[in-house]
């Protein structure tokens, strides 16, 4: 019998705010706390952002471990568990309670600019830096990129987006149900995390 359980994926939390490679120190800020990681720890945290080959797939602990093995980064499963323990990585499944728990304890914060929509394909929006798009998004996902960090949690942002969709007369439940909005967002979030277009932070979260 097959099950239809959503895959548990790895989600990095925090912003890289300092590198001192000469002394093997990588500083990641989560909220007001600074975590100093070694290059091996940082390597696993960086891998939690998504697949290096940019081929979209559920970014599971097993996928991360396989990528770590491929680049000879030892003990990735142990290091990943330690990062989870420190609050630098979350394990969550889109569409499951763990996804909602994650969304209630973080905010999604942009690291780059909105570049607007494409003249050739007005339904396609991009985010990135001037002349350097990093990800292409739907209008709904672009709205979340623009507004989600103003809310006190990612879950509140999904509630706000769903309420807005309902207010403007959209009847598609995938847009008007906050749980469905979150499921869609978490299912595709590594496409924004991998190029550092956004990050997850615990700062200013009000549950």
């Amino acid at each position: 019998m097959t099950t239809d359980q959503p895959a548990v994926q790895v989600y990095p939390i925090g912003q890289l705010i300092g590198v001192r490679a000469a002394v093997d120190q990588f500083d990641v800020r989560v909220g007001a706390t600074l975590h100093s990681l070694t290059s091996a720890e940082f390597g696993v945290w960086a891998m939690a952002h998504g697949p290096a080959d940019h081929v979209p797939r559920p970014w599971t602990p097993a996928e991360l471990a396989a990528q770590a093995t491929a680049v000879d980064l030892p003990e990735a499963p142990r290091r990943l568990a330690e990062l989870v323990e420190q609050g630098l990585v979350a394990l969550a499944a889109a569409g499951a309670e763990s996804g909602r728990e994650l969304a209630m304890r973080v905010r999604m914060v942009p690291l780059v600019l909105g570049l607007g929509n494409s003249a050739h394909a007005p339904d396609a929006y991009s985010v990135g830096l001037p002349g350097r798009p990093l990800a292409v998004l739907s209008a709904a996902a672009y709205d979340l990129f623009e507004w989600a960090h103003m809310e006190t949690s990612l879950w509140r942002a999904c509630e706000g987006a769903a309420a807005t969709a309902a207010r403007v007369g959209i009847t598609d439940v995938t847009a008007t149900d906050p749980g469905a909005v979150l499921t869609s967002l978490l299912g595709d979030l590594h496409r924004l995390l991998t190029p550092n277009a956004v990050y997850l932070d615990t700062w200013a979260v009000d549950r």
């Binding site: 600019l113 909105g114 607007g116 929509n117 003249a119 050739h120 007005p122 929006y125």
Partner: peptide, 26 residues
């Protein structure tokens, strides 16, 4: 404000306007 880029209302037309996000306004 946070730059949100140009908005093209019509395909292959110049931007209708540029968007900034400032507080809860755009």
């Amino acid at each position: 404000g946070h730059q949100m880029g140009p908005f093209h209302q019509h395909r292959d037309a110049p931007p209708s306007y540029w968007v900034i996000r400032l507080g809860w306004d755009s």
